[in-house]
Design a protein around this nucleic acid. Structure first.
Length: 490
RNA sequence: GGCCCCAUCGUCUAGCGGUUAGGACGCCGGCCUCUCACGUCGGUAACAGGGGUUCAAGUCCCCUUGGGGUCACCA
């Protein structure tokens, strides 16, 4: 039995990745199977250089390990899709030869036009199969001549495709719902659909455990297995983690980086335990259990399929339980490992040296680095504004800054400042006002060590979280103030 | 909007035809106690609605409603 997790290195290590990895891991261990980590980096425009390593580190921090992967190797190497291009190209060749796929020379502009047309006619959007019936020899010739094109899957025009989902039974989708999905992009790299099918087959993956968002593209994958003449794996679609409003968990509404939870002082065992209770239950009234215990009793019939809300309070409670059962020595180690250590203090030292008179002044200067995600903005709320800017625009401005720093790699003071200056300029805010707003958001006070140094040392995840929290606090406070001041309407 | 998935307290969930519908978080209160926290005891709070099937339905079926996902040369 072989399972895999296939993260895409496009940003911060996501709790959803840890969630799916956990269930793959547990299932593999339960049955003496093999757990594979494969990096799906076929989108060179979104791939981020530092992301892959962060995923390894974050998963390891959680306590999860894999038997095969880009870092540890294995009999099915390479495990990085960007290093497997020729494999996909060969397989596309097979599909082309069998008439299961075809070359498409449509331009992005034409596709765009078709889509607009379809929208105007209120038809379902999808490729109009313009190139589907081109003479393959013709296509071959044009491709040889260097004409840019993609390769599309030739999906049947009629009939039903049945996907056996192991968690919910057969899911039937009619072929009319599917369009001719791109398999090979014009840059020669495969899309997810092709790459995951080819790799899962070649890597002999027997059970695909992934998030529910994939369920509607699974018919395409099944069709692809059929086109190749391969036996498809078994599919398990896990429920999606949710924000408190029920939507798919997202960074806008909830911290999603594993590193955020590490940085606020969640213990890895608690995180894993919490993730395990999302959709799955141990049995009896147990909700605190170890990984080993979970592996011991694991079975799929204890899954519930409603999307679980990722609830910070509950996670926090579970974490409390774990902290309480630590020995004092372990507690000391945990706190030291977190932030009370030489390395972290060394980063802090330049920020507080000139600001203390006695060593005992240090806590009052650096306390903001040891708080979790939430600050109390009440005392400074009145100052959290830019002259002549509404609360709503202030919030949007802050969120815009978060978006801008998120789009950059690294988290160094110079980058943060550069972005901040550009951003303040774009907002047409004086840097003086803009930076004070940021300072209040990040530190909760008007006086602090250098803003960008502070953000950098605080870390990406806490910084972003605080700015977002401040932005919402400003908006909410304004809303709360409004009805009280507005004249009573009849 | 089309298609697909889902549906027990506010949240995470137990329940697998017959239960006073259980536990946990949160919230509220008692106890413990120099304070607070911990701990402990108790309380608040749910089967979305309507049809069937059945002697019996939270549990099975259908419809409605609600929520979510997905409809890219992103994964």
């Amino acid at each position: 039995m072989r399972v895999r997790i296939a993260p895409s290195p496009t940003g911060d290590p996501h709790v959803g990745t840890a969630y799916i990895a956990l269930f793959n891991y547990v299932f593999a261990k339960k049955h003496g199977g093999t757990f594979v980590l494969r990096i799906e980096d076929t989108d060179q425009t979104r791939a981020r250089a530092d992301s892959e390593q962060m995923i390894f580190d974050a998963l390891h921090w959680c306590g999860l390990t894999w038997d095969e992967g880009p870092d540890v190797g294995g009999p099915y190497a390479p495990y990085r899709q960007s290093e497997r291009s020729h494999i996909y190209q060969d397989h596309v060749g097979v599909l082309l030869a069998k008439g299961e796929a075809y070359r498409c020379f449509c331009t992005a502009e034409r596709l765009q036009k078709v889509r607009i047309q379809q929208q105007a006619e209120k038809k379902n959007p999808g490729y109009d199969r313009h190139c589907r019936d081109l003479d393959p020899k013709d296509g071959e010739a044009r491709a040889k001549a260097g004409e840019p094109h993609v390769v599309r899957m030739k999906v049947p025009l009629t009939g039903d495709i049945v996907v056996e989902d192991e968690l919910r039974g057969p899911v039937t989708i009619s072929a009319e719902q599917l369009d001719d999905q791109v398999l090979l992009k014009s840059d020669g790299l495969p899309t997810y659909h092709l790459a995951n099918v080819v790799d899962d087959h070649l890597m002999e993956i027997t059970h695909v455990i992934r998030a529910e968002e994939w369920i509607s593209s699974t018919p395409k994958h099944v069709l692809l297995y059929q086109a190749f003449g391969w036996e498809p794996p078994r599919f398990f679609h896990m429920p999606l983690l949710r924000n408190s409003d029920g939507s798919k968990i997202s960074k806008r509404k909830n911290p999603v980086s594993i590193n955020y939870y590490r940085d606020i002082g969640i213990l890895p065992h608690a995180l894993l335990n919490f993730l395990a209770t999302m959709g799955w239950s141990f049995g009896g009234d147990r909700e605190k259990f170890t990984l080993a215990e979970m592996i011991d009793v694991f079975s799929w019939d204890r899954m519930s399929l409603g999307g679980p809300v990722f609830n910070l309070e509950k996670l926090s409670h579970l974490n409390e339980l774990y902290i309480h059962e630590l020995t004092e020595a372990q507690l000391v180690d945990a706190v030291i490992g977190w932030r009370f250590n030489r390395e972290y203090l060394a980063r802090l030292a330049p920020l507080f040296q000139k600001r203390i008179k006695k060593l005992s002044d240090v806590m009052s200067v650096v306390d903001l680095f040891f708080h979790g995600g939430e600050l109390d903005y009440a005392p400074v709320l009145a100052d959290m504004k830019v002259p002549d800017v509404t609360a709503e625009d202030t919030r949007d401005g802050l969120l815009a800054y978060v978006d801008k720093i998120e789009a950059r790699e690294g988290f160094e003071p110079a980058m943060l400042e550069e972005v901040a200056r550009e951003w303040a300029d774009a907002q047409k805010w004086k840097t003086k006002h803009a930076f004070m707003l940021l300072r209040l958001a990040v530190t909760g006070r008007k006086a602090s060590p250098g803003l960008f140094e502070t953000m950098s040392v605080l870390g990406k995840d806490l910084t972003r979280r605080r700015i977002r929290a401040a932005a919402e606090t400003i908006k909410k406070a304004a809303e709360a103030a409004k009805p009280a001041q507005a004249p009573k309407a009849k």
